[in-house]
Protein backbone atom coordinates (compact mmCIF):
# COMPACT_ATOMS: atom_id res chain seq x y z
CA UNK A 1 0.00 0.00 0.00
CA UNK A 2 1.20 3.45 -0.91
CA UNK A 3 0.43 6.32 1.34
CA UNK A 4 0.18 9.71 -0.28
CA UNK A 5 1.75 12.38 1.79
CA UNK A 6 -0.38 15.49 1.96
CA UNK A 7 1.40 18.65 2.83
CA UNK A 8 -0.18 20.69 5.56
CA UNK A 9 -1.53 23.98 4.10
CA UNK A 10 0.28 27.02 5.20
CA UNK A 11 -1.62 29.10 7.72
CA UNK A 12 -1.77 32.39 5.79
CA UNK A 13 -3.05 30.67 2.64
CA UNK A 14 -5.91 28.88 4.40
CA UNK A 15 -6.95 32.06 6.17
CA UNK A 16 -7.10 33.86 2.81
CA UNK A 17 -9.30 31.10 1.33
CA UNK A 18 -11.66 31.21 4.30
CA UNK A 19 -12.06 34.96 4.05
CA UNK A 20 -12.84 34.68 0.33
CA UNK A 21 -15.53 32.09 0.99
CA UNK A 22 -17.15 34.12 3.72
CA UNK A 23 -17.27 37.26 1.54
CA UNK A 24 -18.97 35.31 -1.28
CA UNK A 25 -21.56 34.04 1.19
CA UNK A 26 -22.31 37.57 2.41
CA UNK A 27 -22.58 38.85 -1.15
CA UNK A 28 -25.08 36.13 -2.13
CA UNK A 29 -27.11 36.84 1.01
CA UNK A 30 -27.47 40.53 0.12
CA UNK A 31 -27.94 40.36 -3.68
CA UNK A 32 -28.33 36.82 -4.99
CA UNK A 33 -26.92 36.04 -8.46
CA UNK A 34 -28.72 32.74 -9.11
CA UNK A 35 -29.63 31.82 -12.64
CA UNK A 36 -32.29 29.23 -11.90
CA UNK A 37 -35.93 29.86 -12.74
CA UNK A 38 -38.81 29.68 -10.29
CA UNK A 39 -40.49 27.32 -12.70
CA UNK A 40 -44.26 27.31 -12.38
CA UNK A 41 -44.41 31.08 -11.85
CA UNK A 42 -41.66 31.92 -14.30
CA UNK A 43 -41.14 30.39 -17.69
CA UNK A 44 -38.17 30.37 -19.95
CA UNK A 45 -38.67 31.82 -23.43
CA UNK A 46 -38.38 28.90 -25.82
CA UNK A 47 -37.03 29.06 -29.36
CA UNK A 48 -39.59 29.23 -32.18
CA UNK A 49 -38.71 25.76 -33.47
CA UNK A 50 -39.22 24.08 -30.13
CA UNK A 51 -40.73 20.63 -30.49
CA UNK A 52 -43.59 20.35 -28.07
CA UNK A 53 -47.02 18.79 -28.16
CA UNK A 54 -48.98 18.95 -31.41
CA UNK A 55 -52.33 20.25 -32.48
CA UNK A 56 -54.41 19.38 -35.48
CA UNK A 57 -56.48 21.59 -37.78
CA UNK A 58 -59.08 19.22 -39.17
CA UNK A 59 -60.17 21.67 -41.85
CA UNK A 60 -56.76 21.73 -43.45
CA UNK A 61 -56.07 17.99 -43.20
CA UNK A 62 -56.26 16.26 -46.60
CA UNK A 63 -56.13 12.69 -45.22
CA UNK A 64 -52.88 11.88 -46.96
CA UNK A 65 -51.56 9.55 -44.20
CA UNK A 66 -48.09 11.02 -44.61
CA UNK A 67 -47.70 11.78 -40.89
CA UNK A 68 -48.67 8.23 -39.98
CA UNK A 69 -46.28 6.80 -42.56
CA UNK A 70 -43.29 8.89 -41.53
CA UNK A 71 -43.66 8.53 -37.74
CA UNK A 72 -40.53 6.68 -36.58
CA UNK A 73 -42.09 5.71 -33.26
CA UNK A 74 -45.33 4.51 -34.87
CA UNK A 75 -47.24 6.84 -32.56
CA UNK A 76 -49.72 8.16 -35.11
CA UNK A 77 -52.84 6.22 -35.88
CA UNK A 78 -55.47 7.30 -38.40
CA UNK A 79 -59.04 7.42 -37.08
CA UNK A 80 -62.03 7.19 -39.37
CA UNK A 81 -64.41 10.14 -39.12
CA UNK A 82 -67.23 10.51 -41.67
CA UNK A 83 -65.50 8.62 -44.48
CA UNK A 84 -62.24 10.47 -43.91
CA UNK A 85 -59.22 9.65 -41.85
CA UNK A 86 -57.54 11.97 -39.38
CA UNK A 87 -54.41 11.41 -37.32
CA UNK A 88 -54.48 10.77 -33.60
CA UNK A 89 -51.37 10.69 -31.46
CA UNK A 90 -50.32 8.23 -28.83
CA UNK A 91 -48.15 10.29 -26.48
CA UNK A 92 -46.89 7.17 -24.74
CA UNK A 93 -44.97 6.45 -27.92
CA UNK A 94 -44.42 9.92 -29.38
CA UNK A 95 -40.80 11.04 -29.26
CA UNK A 96 -41.67 14.63 -30.24
CA UNK A 97 -39.42 14.55 -33.28
CA UNK A 98 -41.92 16.56 -35.34
CA UNK A 99 -41.29 14.56 -38.49
CA UNK A 100 -45.06 14.61 -38.89
CA UNK A 101 -45.11 18.41 -38.78
CA UNK A 102 -42.35 18.57 -41.36
CA UNK A 103 -44.09 16.06 -43.62
CA UNK A 104 -47.53 17.67 -43.48
CA UNK A 105 -48.11 19.26 -46.90
CA UNK A 106 -50.87 21.61 -45.75
CA UNK A 107 -49.62 22.59 -42.28
CA UNK A 108 -52.62 20.93 -40.68
CA UNK A 109 -50.44 19.60 -37.88
CA UNK A 110 -49.15 22.58 -35.93
CA UNK A 111 -46.33 22.55 -33.41
CA UNK A 112 -46.53 24.21 -30.00
CA UNK A 113 -44.02 25.06 -27.31
CA UNK A 114 -45.99 23.19 -24.67
CA UNK A 115 -43.95 20.39 -23.21
CA UNK A 116 -45.09 20.32 -19.60
CA UNK A 117 -48.43 18.55 -19.58
CA UNK A 118 -49.16 15.84 -17.13
CA UNK A 119 -51.64 13.11 -18.03
CA UNK A 120 -53.93 11.56 -15.47
CA UNK A 121 -53.44 8.02 -16.70
CA UNK A 122 -51.86 6.04 -19.53
CA UNK A 123 -55.15 5.73 -21.38
CA UNK A 124 -55.61 9.50 -21.53
CA UNK A 125 -52.28 9.80 -23.31
CA UNK A 126 -53.79 8.34 -26.47
CA UNK A 127 -55.43 11.30 -28.17
CA UNK A 128 -58.00 10.87 -30.95
CA UNK A 129 -58.22 13.69 -33.55
CA UNK A 130 -60.99 15.53 -31.65
CA UNK A 131 -58.76 16.02 -28.63
CA UNK A 132 -55.87 17.15 -30.79
CA UNK A 133 -57.81 20.14 -32.06
CA UNK A 134 -57.05 23.34 -30.18
CA UNK A 135 -54.37 24.02 -27.61
CA UNK A 136 -53.24 21.17 -25.41
CA UNK A 137 -54.82 21.58 -21.97
CA UNK A 138 -52.48 22.84 -19.31
CA UNK A 139 -52.55 24.78 -16.05
CA UNK A 140 -50.63 28.00 -16.51
CA UNK A 141 -49.39 29.87 -13.49
CA UNK A 142 -46.61 31.85 -15.07
CA UNK A 143 -46.57 35.61 -15.19
CA UNK A 144 -42.91 36.20 -16.01
CA UNK A 145 -40.92 35.23 -19.06
CA UNK A 146 -37.23 34.69 -18.52
CA UNK A 147 -34.57 34.98 -21.15
CA UNK A 148 -30.89 34.24 -20.72
CA UNK A 149 -28.27 36.58 -22.03
CA UNK A 150 -25.21 34.59 -23.01
CA UNK A 151 -23.04 37.53 -24.12
CA UNK A 152 -20.19 38.02 -21.67
CA UNK A 153 -21.45 37.26 -18.17
CA UNK A 154 -24.45 34.97 -17.93
CA UNK A 155 -27.41 37.17 -17.05
CA UNK A 156 -31.12 36.65 -16.72
CA UNK A 157 -33.58 39.05 -18.28
CA UNK A 158 -37.02 38.90 -16.69
CA UNK A 159 -40.05 40.40 -18.33
CA UNK A 160 -43.57 40.65 -16.97
CA UNK A 161 -45.38 39.07 -19.90
CA UNK A 162 -46.90 35.76 -20.89
CA UNK A 163 -45.59 34.07 -23.98
CA UNK A 164 -47.91 32.64 -26.63
CA UNK A 165 -47.05 28.97 -26.80
CA UNK A 166 -48.74 28.28 -30.11
CA UNK A 167 -46.63 28.67 -33.20
CA UNK A 168 -48.32 29.51 -36.46
CA UNK A 169 -46.85 27.63 -39.41
CA UNK A 170 -47.28 28.70 -42.98
CA UNK A 171 -48.20 26.20 -45.63
CA UNK A 172 -44.87 24.88 -46.84
CA UNK A 173 -43.84 25.81 -50.35
CA UNK A 174 -43.93 22.56 -52.23
CA UNK A 175 -44.68 21.70 -55.84
CA UNK A 176 -48.34 20.84 -56.19
CA UNK A 177 -49.12 17.43 -57.51
CA UNK A 178 -52.10 15.73 -59.05
CA UNK A 179 -52.53 12.02 -59.62
CA UNK A 180 -52.75 10.97 -63.24
CA UNK A 181 -52.87 7.69 -65.09
CA UNK A 182 -49.38 7.20 -66.47
CA UNK A 183 -49.79 3.59 -67.53
CA UNK A 184 -53.52 2.92 -68.01
CA UNK A 185 -52.64 -0.38 -69.69
CA UNK A 186 -51.46 -1.68 -66.29
CA UNK A 187 -54.85 -1.03 -64.68
CA UNK A 188 -56.66 -4.15 -63.52
CA UNK A 189 -59.91 -2.29 -62.84
CA UNK A 190 -59.80 -3.07 -59.13
CA UNK A 191 -61.10 0.39 -58.16
CA UNK A 192 -58.98 0.51 -55.01
CA UNK A 193 -58.05 4.07 -55.99
CA UNK A 194 -61.76 4.97 -56.20
CA UNK A 195 -62.45 3.59 -52.76
CA UNK A 196 -59.36 5.01 -51.11
CA UNK A 197 -59.53 8.59 -52.43
CA UNK A 198 -60.40 10.82 -49.46
CA UNK A 199 -61.68 13.59 -51.75
CA UNK A 200 -63.78 11.27 -53.92
CA UNK A 201 -61.92 12.67 -56.90
CA UNK A 202 -61.74 9.35 -58.74
CA UNK A 203 -64.96 7.97 -60.12
CA UNK A 204 -65.88 5.02 -62.28
CA UNK A 205 -68.85 4.20 -64.38
CA UNK A 206 -69.80 1.26 -66.52
CA UNK A 207 -70.24 2.22 -70.15
CA UNK A 208 -71.65 -1.18 -70.89
CA UNK A 209 -71.26 -4.46 -69.03
CA UNK A 210 -67.75 -5.04 -70.32
CA UNK A 211 -66.25 -1.54 -70.37
CA UNK A 212 -65.41 0.53 -67.34
CA UNK A 213 -64.46 4.19 -67.51
CA UNK A 214 -62.38 5.61 -64.69
CA UNK A 215 -61.94 9.33 -64.32
CA UNK A 216 -59.87 11.59 -62.09
CA UNK A 217 -61.24 15.03 -61.30
CA UNK A 218 -58.00 16.99 -61.08
CA UNK A 219 -59.73 19.96 -59.50
CA UNK A 220 -60.79 17.90 -56.51
CA UNK A 221 -57.43 16.08 -56.32
CA UNK A 222 -55.20 17.42 -53.55
CA UNK A 223 -52.15 15.40 -54.53
CA UNK A 224 -52.22 13.35 -51.33
CA UNK A 225 -50.97 10.28 -53.28
CA UNK A 226 -53.05 7.78 -51.33
CA UNK A 227 -54.27 6.26 -54.61
CA UNK A 228 -50.73 6.04 -55.95
CA UNK A 229 -49.52 4.21 -52.87
CA UNK A 230 -52.48 1.86 -52.92
CA UNK A 231 -52.49 1.02 -56.64
CA UNK A 232 -51.25 -2.58 -56.89
CA UNK A 233 -49.88 -2.23 -60.42
CA UNK A 234 -48.37 1.27 -60.62
CA UNK A 235 -50.98 2.62 -62.99
CA UNK A 236 -51.02 6.05 -61.37
CA UNK A 237 -48.15 8.47 -60.90
CA UNK A 238 -47.92 11.97 -59.43
CA UNK A 239 -47.62 14.80 -61.96
CA UNK A 240 -46.77 18.45 -61.40
CA UNK A 241 -50.09 20.27 -61.44
CA UNK A 242 -48.94 23.31 -63.41
CA UNK A 243 -47.12 21.24 -66.05
CA UNK A 244 -50.03 18.91 -66.66
CA UNK A 245 -52.62 21.66 -66.89
CA UNK A 246 -50.44 23.80 -69.16
CA UNK A 247 -49.80 20.80 -71.40
CA UNK A 248 -53.52 20.08 -71.61
CA UNK A 249 -54.34 23.64 -72.66
CA UNK A 250 -51.74 23.72 -75.41
CA UNK A 251 -53.08 20.43 -76.73
CA UNK A 252 -56.56 21.86 -76.98
CA UNK A 253 -55.32 24.90 -78.86
CA UNK A 254 -53.27 22.79 -81.25
Amino acid sequence: MVRIKVEKPKVHKSVALHIKAITTAFKEAISPGTITIHYPRERRKLPDNFRGLLQLDKEKCINCFRCAHICPANAIQMYQRENKYYPGIDYTKCILCHFCVDSCPTAALKPSKIHDVAFASLSTMVLPPEELAGEPEMWREDTVTVEYDFDGDLKMIKRKEVENLIVEVEKPKRPEFVAGAAFPENCIACRICVNSCPQNAITFKLQDLQTMVLEIDFEKCTGCMVCIRNCPTQTLLPFRREEVLKGGESDEQG
Binding site: I188, Q210, M212, V213
Partner: peptide, 14 residues
Protein backbone atom coordinates in the same frame (compact mmCIF):
# COMPACT_ATOMS: atom_id res chain seq x y z
CA UNK B 1 -41.77 10.76 -69.48
CA UNK B 2 -45.15 9.08 -69.38
CA UNK B 3 -48.16 10.96 -70.60
CA UNK B 4 -50.65 12.03 -67.96
CA UNK B 5 -54.26 11.03 -68.49
CA UNK B 6 -57.21 11.78 -66.31
CA UNK B 7 -59.61 9.26 -67.78
CA UNK B 8 -59.09 5.82 -69.16
CA UNK B 9 -61.25 2.87 -70.06
CA UNK B 10 -60.77 -0.71 -69.09
CA UNK B 11 -62.26 -3.78 -70.70
CA UNK B 12 -63.67 -6.27 -68.26
CA UNK B 13 -63.71 -9.99 -68.95
CA UNK B 14 -66.96 -11.75 -69.74
Amino acid sequence: PPECRFDWTKERPE
